[in-house]
Amino acid sequence: MKNNRNHQINPFLKVIQLHKNESVLIKKAIKNNREAQHVLFEMHAPKMLSICRYYIKDIHKAEEAMLNGFFKVFTNLKSFKNEGSFEGWIRRIMVRESISFLRQEKHIEFPVEVIEYKNDYSNNIKTEIEVAEIQQLIDALPEGYRMVFVMYAIEGYKHHEIAELLKITEGTSKSQLFKARKMLQEKIKKLNKLSYGTN
């Protein structure tokens, strides 16, 4: 019984422990403790790479953007005031970094090539396929549509925030979202027709 009780309480304690650990790690990382920085990187990098990948089709470039983002995270860690979650703070940095990366790379546009990392999606095969399909659909969108759609539908930004970050008007943001949705619907219809046809 005692063991069962401990087993029931443990997940809650684990969350507190993790939070405590994270704040301790952050304090150490502020003092340029490389080990603490490494642990924080390992904790958040997979999620952040996934976010960068929403915007950047090439996984290597997405990783480059993510490393730039982490560099900024660790060099500006003093400005993190524990007001929100650490993950949310890093996430915002990653979105900004991905946008600026795309702006820099705009003049050297490479042909679209979806790279699948099978090892990364090993947890659930069904989800893996679905997520891969979703990513393919998003990647197929024009850059402007893609950025606005991801920021609005997945990241939860509002139109005025998107307009500020992308330096466009709110009207442009809304029209880009509308067109992105329409394009995605058409692509899903095609995909469904294809899957019905095959089945």
């Binding site: 997979p46 999620k47 996934s50 929403y54 997405a62 997520v131 990513q135």
Partner: peptide
């Protein structure tokens, strides 16, 4: 929801 659950492992020399 599906994209939120996704995790992409960075390359070994990233750190």
């Amino acid at each position: 929801n599906k994209l939120d659950e996704r995790r992409l492992k960075p390359s070994t020399d990233a750190w």
